[in-house]
Design a protein around this nucleic acid. Structure first.
Length: 314
DNA sequence: TTCCAGATGG
DNA sequence: CCATCTGGAA
């Protein structure tokens, strides 16, 4: 029996969705990938530290914009020990300077480095489960690092991979099914090249608007979407607009505190909102700064005149 | 507007 | 399961 017990859902186990000739499907993709693919510096190493850095940077940032930041980051903190010794404010500042988005991910990366040094004697865990215990490392990143560093991960599943499976093999839009099918299709013991190849496919041939013929997609003969002409992709939750959002205000707080070492809330407020006061007064700002403090990015202390003072955490 | 190699805490 | 987290580019 090839079907694992995946729970009682009869729908999730309905019939094979992948071609019978799995070997041909695998071989076609790997050959396509090895013949020609985009070149990224982190694909030239098997050291888990720089690979983790690249993965965390890539989570919500276009790859082409990551390259320069990745070089600069490793220039500044060449080893996991160096990063573990760094100041939190310095790492968060780097994130902001390089426009890498969510500065929470800077905190996670810094924290993960400290974990590797203090809990693992400076040696990265080699399994997806072990890697997932690191801060900011979820299922995707754990499998990516295990694959690219140790060639020993499970199939990675991100929105890219989901779109490919959904189109090629008509896999239903369901997280656990995506994971199951992704692992069925992956050739055992070849996670490094395979996960690179699948994501390359999703990146250059099977993006939101597909480029099957231009990119010479190796799966056209098996692809459900290519056969039917229906290139619908799984729904991705739409993000709320950034303008006027809490996220934008958080960014302004961090930026102001990098400029001014420490600021009382009355000085900080106007730098966050031009209309500071009223509904968005000290109570509102204190809540905002408290959340940043909970995230470990900011410290709040009582000032002389009983007014809270905020500063970036070191 | 929407998208981009996700993860975390509620 | 859901809200939240950032900023640049297409």
């Amino acid at each position: 029996m090839s079907g694992e017990a995946t729970g009682g859902d009869p729908d999730a186990d309905a019939g094979p969705r992948v071609p019978d000739d799995l070997d041909a499907v695998r071989e076609a993709l790997v050959s396509w990938y090895e013949a020609d693919h985009r070149s990224y510096p982190w694909r030239e190493t098997t050291d888990p530290y720089p690979i983790l850095v690249s993965e965390v940077m890539s989570q919500q940032t276009q790859l082409d914009r990551v390259v320069e930041a990745w070089h600069d980051f490793l220039d500044e903190w060449p080893t996991v020990e160096a990063l573990a010794d760094a100041d939190r404010a310095g790492v968060v500042g780097f994130w902001t300077d390089h426009s890498l988005g969510y500065n929470n991910r800077a905190k996670y990366l810094h924290e993960a480095a400290r974990q590797v040094v203090s809990e693992h004697d400076g040696e990265f865990p080699r399994t997806p489960d072990g890697l997932q215990d690191l801060m900011g490392v979820g299922p995707y990143t754990a499998n990516a690092v295990a694959s690219f560093a140790f060639d020993d991960g499970d199939a990675v599943v991100d929105t890219n991979v989901e779109r490919v499976l959904y189109r090629a093999f008509d896999v239903p839009d369901d997280d656990s099914t995506f994971e199951r099918v992704a692992n069925e299709v992956m050739p055992p013991g070849e996670s490094r090249v395979w996960n690179n190849a699948v994501m390359e496919l999703g990146g250059v041939a099977c993006g939101k608007s597909p480029r099957c013929d231009e990119a010479g997609c190796p799966w056209r003969e098996w692809c459900h979407a290519y056969g039917t002409g229906d290139f619908t992709a799984p729904d991705v939750p739409t993000q709320p607009s950034f303008d006027g959002s809490r996220r934008q205000m958080r960014g302004r707080v961090v930026k102001a505190l990098r400029e001014y070492e420490a600021l009382p809330l009355s000085k900080l407020g106007p730098r966050v909102r031009v209309d500071y006061g009223g509904e968005y007064g000290e109570a509102w700002l204190h809540g905002l700064v408290s959340d940043l403090a909970d995230d470990g990015l900011v410290e709040v202390a009582d000032g002389d005149d009983d007014e809270p003072v905020a500063r970036l955490r070191r």
